[in-house]
Every structure is written in structure tokens, then in C-alpha cells.
Simulated scan of single mutants.
Amino acid sequence: MVHFMKRHLISSSQPLAPPLSLVPATAAIFYTPSQFATETMTVITPSVPHAPFSAPPLPMSILRRLPFPSLTPRHRLPRRRFATLAAVRQDTTVWTPSPVSSIEIAAESLFHVSIDVSNSPDLVASHTLPGQYLQLRLPDVEKPSFLAIASPPSLAASTGAFEFLVKSVAGSTAELLCGLKKGDVVELTQAMGNGFNINKIDPPEDYPTVLIFATGSGISPIRSLIESGFGADKRSDVRLYFGARNLRRMAYQDRFKDWESSGVKVVPVLSQPDDGWAGESGYVQAAFAKAKQIYSPKGTGAVICGQRQMAEEVSSILVADGVSKEKILMNF
């Protein structure tokens, strides 16, 4: 390559080339062998000694093939495309400002939270099934919380309120939410999720047994289910196995009597009961495995919400006893 440049760019009778400071930048041009095979370039040696040398411009056919990585548009497209997609994704979430109606203690570390959505008909209309949830965020707090709606859909339609059972976890958005006061404004998305598809265990005469399982704050969407009405009074065996550490951690005890009157037998299960507790002890799955009493697996449905291990073990017990997996409902 060096020999080629000397032979074509500098005449043997010429003096040495001018200093680099006088040579235009385009004078030092290198070609690949493939380019030499397809291009013809004539170089005219300057006749004036020491005159600045200027190479002729490259043919356009070569310029088109020269790579310019920093200027190639395709190197920048992925970043622009990603930013555009991220913006679209962000813009699809609609946040509606809504004031807090009340915050009350429900149990140890658990709070009743009521949000006024009476001025947001779209929010109200989005809640159609028990078991649905939404996102809630606070001003100046980046991470939102996912909350199951505890109230039945009919409550929002009649009173304009969404109710939640919120567990206050240190350092979380939920903890900040539980510290708000009446009138403070939060932002909500519309209700989402498929909820509990009760149609799978209807009509009541075909599914006379419905077994319900909940632990901790997982009772929240179960409350929505029970108070929405799913024909419990038309079924012969509806049981709710509700697990908590102790009675101080068990929410909605004031609703148990109403739930029982609607046809749901409540079975509290305490993992660390206080002295004098005469009810079921241990874990929900163990209490159910001990009782079972499934008379007709084909006519049995189940609803589960709470700790993952509990949900998996209860599902395994039910399926092993002949209950169809499709009749075991969850809200996620």
C-alpha cells in the first residue's frame, strides 16, 4: 500500500512533499483492495515545486460505501424507538385525583381506607367484579401501591366510595397512605384485573359447596365477594377459612355475624393464638386438611386469596380430592 501511494502520488523527479501543515486533509486517502478493483483514479502531479498538493474529490460511488458509524441513523433509532414506546406506555395510565374520606384502624398494622370517587364516574364504572384491584399513588412518591378493592361494586355506585384494607409496611407507600388525613388527595387508576369469575361456579344448585380461603390482608377482596352476593344462601356448604397470627391481627371481625347470616360459615384460624383460644390453631391449609368434608368434588368450587404457600397447598389438596382446577378461583 505504501509503495502504491508513493508511486501514484509523488513523481520521482519531484522534491519531497510539502509539510503536513500545508497539505489538505483530503490528501491522505486510503483505499481497500476491493475499492482499487472497481474504481479508477487519475492523479496529476503539481508542476510547481513545493506547491500545496490537493487530491481530487472521491467519486460518489466510493463515498456512498465509506462507513460513518457516528452518523449512521440506524445507530440512533433503537434509542428513539425505546423512548417513544416508554412514553406511550406511560401515557396509557390515567391517574384520577381523589380525596381521602376516612382512615381508621382495622386491626394491628391494618387500616380501613376510604377514598371518595363520587366525582369520577369513570372510576366507579370500572369496578364491576369482586376481586379487582387498582394502583394508588401519592404526590411526590414515585412508586405506587397495588390495592385490592375491599368494598363491593355496588358500594361505589351507591355512595361514591372505594374502600380498602391496607397493611402498613415500614418504608412503603402503604405506610405513607395510612398516615394521611381526611381531605388529603391521592391518585387512582381505574379498577383492573378479571376479579373472581363466579360464573365458573354457578348456578348454586350445581355447585352447592364453595370453600373460601384467606390470610391476613387477603381477606380484602374476599369481603368484596361475600358482600357482592354470590348465592351463598342458596348453597348448602359455604365455608371461609380465615387465617391470622392472632385476634389482634384479624380484620373484619365486626362483619362476621353479617357474613354468617348471608350463608357463609366463618372459620377463624390463628397461627399464634393467645391463651384461652378454643378455635382452630395453626395454618389455614392444615385446618382445612383436618376438616375436609368434601361431599361432592364435582359440585365444589373454591376461592383463594392470600399467602402464596397457603394458596399452593390448598389448591393441591383440593385437586387431589377431585376438585377441578378450573373451579379454583383466584383474582390474579
Rank of each mutant, 00 (worst) to 15 (best):
P221S: 01
P221K: 02
A232C: 02
L225G: 00
E227C: 07
F242T: 07
A232V: 02
S228W: 05
S228N: 09
L225C: 03
D254P: 07
S236K: 07
L225R: 07
G229P: 04
I226A: 04
P221I: 05
M250G: 08
G231M: 00
P221Y: 00
N246V: 13
R223M: 01
F230M: 07
S228F: 01
A251N: 12
F230Q: 06
R245P: 04
Y241S: 05
A232I: 01
F230I: 02
A244T: 14
R239M: 04
N246R: 04
R255S: 15
R249W: 13
D237Q: 08
S236N: 05
G243W: 13
R223I: 03
D237L: 10
Q253I: 07
Y241H: 13
E227H: 07
F242S: 07
Y241M: 11
I226C: 05
R245K: 15
I226E: 03
A232P: 00
R248T: 10
A232M: 05
A232G: 09
L225K: 02
S224T: 06
R223F: 06
A251Q: 10
L225I: 05
D237Y: 04
D233R: 04
R249E: 15
L247D: 14
Y252Q: 13
G231T: 05
Q253L: 06
F242C: 06
V238A: 12
F242H: 10
D233I: 00
S228V: 04
R249N: 14
N246D: 15
R249M: 14
S228K: 02
M250N: 13
L240R: 10
G229T: 02
G229H: 11
P221T: 00
Y252E: 08
L240M: 06
L247E: 15
S236R: 10
G231E: 06
R239D: 00
I222A: 03
Y252A: 10
V238Y: 04
F242Y: 15
G243T: 10
R255W: 12
D233A: 11
E227D: 13
F256S: 09
Y252K: 08
V238K: 06
R239H: 08
S236M: 03
P221L: 03
Y241V: 02
S224F: 09
K234C: 06
R245Q: 15
I226M: 03
E227M: 09
